[in-house]
């Protein structure tokens, strides 16, 4: 199969739309006949990343590449960057404000969840420059 490339612009202001891109990828993978377990891992990882981009990153872009053996996702924002990556990777640690918690997020599970559900996880961040997550889930 030739690789399929998908591109999404993630709005910083529209929380109600957050997750729309992940839903689209999920439906695309389903139509391609990808296994439910693989789809779930991709969907949860990308959705958490998408939510993070809206909450913390000031929006950004997501590029997805689907090949025969894996799904690669690159989520890039030009937000404030992550000050302490070690803390951000810790379950339960969150810098999300109360208004985000009221929306059901900010439990400090985002990045740990993303790592848990992906086979390859790379986090590049710089203060004042932004954060890029490069993720890979192998077809199972």
């Amino acid at each position: 199969m030739d690789s399929i490339k998908l591109h999404y612009d993630i709005s910083a202001t529209d929380f109600t739309r957050a997750g729309a891109a992940s839903g689209d990828v999920k439906r695309t993978l389903k139509a391609l006949g990808v296994s439910p377990a693989t789809i779930r891992n991709v969907a949860v990882a990308m959705y958490e990343g998408e939510i993070n981009m809206v909450i913390h990153g000031g929006g950004g872009v997501i590029d997805v590449e689907i090949t025969e053996d894996a799904i690669r996702m690159v989520l890039a924002d030009q937000g404030p960057g992550i000050e302490n990556v070690e803390l951000a990777m810790k379950e339960g640690y969150s810098t999300a404000p109360d208004n985000i918690r009221a929306l059901g997020f900010g439990a400090g599970m985002g990045l740990p969840n993303i790592k848990k559900y992906t086979d390859e996880f790379q986090l590049d961040t710089a203060l004042g420059v932004g954060t890029t997550l490069t993720l890979k889930v192998f077809m199972k």
């Binding site: 929380f15 957050a18 059901g104 559900y117």
Partner: peptide
């Protein structure tokens, strides 16, 4: 990640549906 069919919640926003979808 579990096999779960039903989500009970007191939260009301579109992310409830998106989460259930994922």
């Amino acid at each position: 990640v579990k096999e779960q069919g039903v989500l009970l919640t007191g939260l009301v926003n579109p992310q409830v549906v998106r989460t259930a979808e994922m």
